[in-house]
Computed example of a mutant assay.
Amino acid sequence: MNAASNLNIAESDLIKGCLDGDRRMQQELYNRLSARMYAVCLRYASNTEEAEDILQEGFIKVFRKLDSYRGDGSFEGWARRVFVNTAIEHFRRKKYLQPVTEKEENTIEGKYVSVLDDLGEKDIMDLISQLSPGYRTVFNMYVVEGYSHKEIGDMLGISEGTSKSQLSRAKVILQDLVKKHLDAERNAK
């Protein structure tokens, strides 16, 4: 994933070369995207091995579906969507989520108070990675990717209410994790 990229190759030439089956262009595309797409995969995965599996599966899909890229919007944005969808499919196969009854949904309190301003990006990503796979996936889809609860429900095969409750619970857990992290930092000083 750390191979240097040749930025002298135009994106359109790179895509055409990949479509023509040019292995050098495929390697170049991998070099350009792998680090950023691996970061996307890590947000959804339980561990590095799972992220690497999602990354590999995502690149297979990118190469197979490359002819469907029409040039509307950025290529990286298109590829990112492929990787997010691959991660979501991977997640759905694992069946991490449990349905929530309407009564349970109505009792969930959104007590999340943002204290994330005091944390660095790495700290935040580390805390998010501590969430269970179900909470982490819904949190990433809603907060990071910008999906609605209806879209999340449709994509994961869960109800909109389950998506909302998973997000609410993720925020409560994150709040506790953030407080513990900040307390540990204060005590270390």
Rank of each mutant, 00 (worst) to 15 (best):
M25I: 01
Q26P: 05
Q26L: 12
Y30F: 15
N31W: 03
S34C: 13
A35M: 01
Y38W: 09
Y38I: 04
Y38G: 03
V40W: 04
R43T: 04
Y44W: 01
Y44I: 01
A45L: 07
T48M: 07
E49N: 13
E49R: 07
A51R: 06
E52P: 11
I54R: 03
I54P: 02
G58P: 02
F59R: 02
K61Y: 04
V62M: 13
F63C: 03
K65L: 11
L66S: 06
D67H: 15
D67M: 08
S68C: 00
G71N: 09
E76V: 14
G77D: 03
G77Y: 06
A79K: 11
A79H: 10
A79P: 06
R80S: 05
R80L: 00
R81Y: 01
V82W: 10
F83N: 05
V84W: 09
N85P: 00
N85S: 04
E89R: 14
H90L: 06
R92I: 05
R93S: 08
Y96L: 10
Y96S: 14
L97R: 00
Q98V: 08
V100K: 13
V100S: 11
T101I: 01
K103A: 15
K103G: 05
E104L: 11
E104S: 14
E105M: 11
E105I: 01
T107P: 00
E109R: 13
G110R: 07
K111F: 05
Y112C: 02
S114P: 08
V115S: 10
D117G: 11
L119Q: 11
G120D: 14
G120V: 05
K122G: 00
D123P: 10
I124D: 00
M125L: 10
M125I: 06
D126K: 11
L127G: 05
S129Q: 13
Q130G: 01
L131N: 02
G134A: 07
R136I: 01
R136H: 02
T137V: 04
V138M: 02
F139D: 09
Y142W: 09
V144E: 15
V144D: 15
E145D: 13
E145Q: 09
E145L: 01
G146D: 03
E151K: 13
M155Y: 10
M155A: 15
L156P: 09
L156D: 10
